[in-house]
């Protein structure tokens, strides 16, 4: 039986391009039996757009599926679009009154209130300079309003957020790689840890900050992470092993 589910299912793991279409319309069978039409629910994640009786693909990438009926496109795009609840690395670009303007790599700058830091009061302002890095979370992110960031959780704790990065290196990778890095039990991070110790901050906006003992080691980690973009796990492991052996 040709259902909409089946149409999606047969494409799982395949590359889809913008313009590809999944139609809801079922083929006209000879019997015309209206009884076997069931309502099906499909949740379309990023990369899909509904247009009448069809679902259009609007990003290029690999079709992924999660039980029972969630489908999305895993794209390697680099442009970040803010989404509520995501943690990002921002760069403070301006201090104006009681808010900081923060660049998060999106189309618009986000605002961050100076009260949205742990322990901050009207008297006790946080020490944030222009050009500093902040790890923060979106509380407001929609297409019609200026996005808003906070550096505290709902209990008022910093919970790892706030200003960071006195030294170390910030660089940009694709959003796909960031998601791979942030996945629980990420293989890349596990493999990388074996080489030498380092600190790593990953923002959902594609920014990655690393710091190792020396400048050289920081550069090695940064370059390794950048090259992970287009490598199979086998290639990566071989490469990392070579680096660990010091042959590169």
């Amino acid at each position: 039986m040709d259902t909409v589910h089946a149409r999606f299912k047969e494409k799982i793991g395949e590359v889809l391009l913008p313009g590809d279409v999944f139609s809801f319309r079922l083929p006209e069978d000879g019997d015309g039996d209206g009884n076997n039409i069931k309502t099906e629910k499909i949740i379309c994640g990023p990369g899909f757009r509904r247009n009448g009786e069809e679902v259009q693909v609007c990003k290029s990438g690999i079709l992924r599926h999660k039980q029972p009926n969630l489908y999305w496109i895993d794209s390697q795009q680099r442009r970040y679009v803010p989404a509520k609840g995501e943690s990002v690395i921002g760069i403070v670009t301006a201090k104006s009154g009681d808010i900081f303007k923060v660049d998060v790599g999106g189309s618009d700058q986000a605002s961050l209130s100076y009260l949205a830091f742990e322990g901050a009061t009207k008297r006790n302002r946080p020490n944030v300079q222009v050009g500093d890095l902040v790890y923060s979370q979106f509380t407001i992110a929609n297409k019609d309003m200026e996005p808003e960031l906070v550096c505290i959780d709902s209990c008022g704790r910093a919970n790892g957020m706030g200003v960071f990065g006195a030294d170390g290196l910030l660089f940009k990778v694709s959003l796909g790689l960031v998601r791979r890095l942030l996945a629980p039990q990420s293989e890349i991070v596990k493999d990388l840890e074996k080489i030498f110790p380092f600190e790593l901050v990953v923002g959902m906006n594609g920014r990655v900050w690393v710091k190792a003992k020396t400048v050289q080691q920081t550069l090695i980690v940064a370059n390794l992470l950048e090259t992970c973009e287009n490598m199979t796990s086998q290639q990566r492991q071989t490469l990392f092993r070579r680096v660990a052996e010091g042959s590169l």
Binding site: I91, T93, D103, G105, Q109, Q129, G131, D132, L133, G165, A166, D167, G168, L169, L170, W209, V215, T218
Partner: peptide, 12 residues
């Protein structure tokens, strides 16, 4: 607008 250069990148 362009992505600003952070202090940490500059120092590094």
């Amino acid at each position: 607008r362009d992505t600003p250069l952070s202090n940490c990148e500059k120092r590094f």
